[in-house]
Design a binder for these strands. Structure first.
Length: 328
DNA sequence: AAACGTATCAACCGCGGAATA
DNA sequence: GTATTCCGCGGTTGATACGTT
């Protein structure tokens, strides 16, 4: 049984493991800025990084990718995760697609460390809920195949949305400026330059400036307020203030901070709309009379979105293809 | 102040499925 | 149609930060 799936790439001689160093991060980021994320296999070779492609991809998607929000989960996010977990099970990637600023890894960790416990306590304290909040998911009864089916369907929907979005948004302005505004807390967020995108193939950020800023931040003593993990430095600043525009197959969204939402709703804002606006990032403020379809694609009225999602089961969202399985 | 226990999260690992030869 | 390679996902691990005794 040599090949059940792909053998791990770690046995290649000299492949480094363990935490990433700032230097490695820089190399990876600048490479991806230039070449995009199309071909992970070639990343180690082309960059000289002594990491396997998998490790590079992981580092990028879980940490370096633009638009990742770090730090505490908001209540909204928490609710979303609980809701979606009940709906989708432990499909963290699928769940993460609704929480675009969070990585699947983050969500998974948060679930395992916080939410699971929380729900357990809740259950113990007498909540009756038929909902099974454990490992499996509420709908897991019949549903391995259904799960796959759902996943596929979701992907199809996403793609359709994307295509429609592109088609519909051709006329819209593609520029969007990243303001260094808000993000909730404290931050000494510095305004990183956003190489404003010319849609699909755009580079999401000005490499030189951001990297030099990155360097600057590394020079500073770590701020305990910020993030405590070794991999954090101040990079999150950069990352958080950029719009995504890379051509990553999975994470190439752009997050506009110029949308109508404010404060806490920054999160809701990107919710759902993200998938649809990933390429042009056009701020939906330009609400022209929208067709139903366009509304679906571009509507990011925060409250609305959130409401919608919270009230919408997957079944509903997929036009009643499934029988409704009572959530609440 | 030290020892110990717990929580957190970045990274690893193995697998399945898609893509390609 | 088969074998091989690559990508992405989810479960798990291990280092370390944090809290308690």
């Amino acid at each position: 049984m040599q090949h059940m799936g792909r053998p791990p790439c770690f046995d290649k001689i000299g492949n480094k493991k363990g935490p990433w160093t700032p230097e490695e991060d820089i190399i990876l980021v600048s490479y991806i800025q230039e070449h995009g994320t199309g071909n992970w296999r070639s990343v180690p070779t082309n960059t000289g990084l002594m990491r396997c492609s998998k490790s590079c991809r992981l580092r990028w998607t879980n940490y370096l990718r633009p638009g990742i929000k770090r730090g505490n989960f908001t209540e909204h996010e928490e609710e979303m995760i609980i809701h979606l977990q009940a709906l989708l099970g432990n499909r963290w990637a699928a769940i993460a697609s609704y929480l675009p600023q969070r990585t699947d890894n983050d969500i998974k960790n948060y679930w395992n460390t916080h939410l699971k416990k929380k729900l357990k306590l809740k259950d113990q304290s007498g909540s009756d809920e038929g909902v099974d909040h454990q490992e499996g998911h509420s709908c897991s009864s019949s549903s391995h195949s259904r799960g796959q089916w759902e996943r596929r369907l979701q992907t199809d929907i996403k793609m359709a949305k994307q295509a429609l979005c592109e088609a519909l948004s051709l006329h819209k302005s593609t520029t969007h400026v990243v303001s260094d505004s808000k993000p909730s807390s404290s931050s000494h967020h510095q305004p990183y330059i956003n190489a404003s995108s010319s849609s699909a193939s755009s580079i999401y950020v000005s490499s030189y400036q951001n990297i030099s800023r990155l360097m600057e931040n590394w020079m500073k003593p770590p701020n305990s307020n910020d993030t405590n993990s070794p991999g954090c430095y101040s990079f999150s600043n950069m990352v958080n203030n950029n719009t995504g525009g890379s051509s990553s197959s999975e994470g190439a969204y752009s997050i506009s901070t110029t949308t109508t939402c404010t404060q806490d709703h920054a999160f809701d804002d990107s919710l759902l709309t993200l998938n649809s606006c990933r390429h042009d990032g056009s701020p939906p403020e330009t609400h022209v009379p929208l067709s139903l379809l366009e509304n679906w694609l571009f509507d990011d009225d925060a409250a609305q979105c959130h409401e919608d999602l919270m009230n919408m089961s997957l079944e509903e969202s997929t036009a009643g293809l499934f029988q409704k399985e009572a959530m609440h």
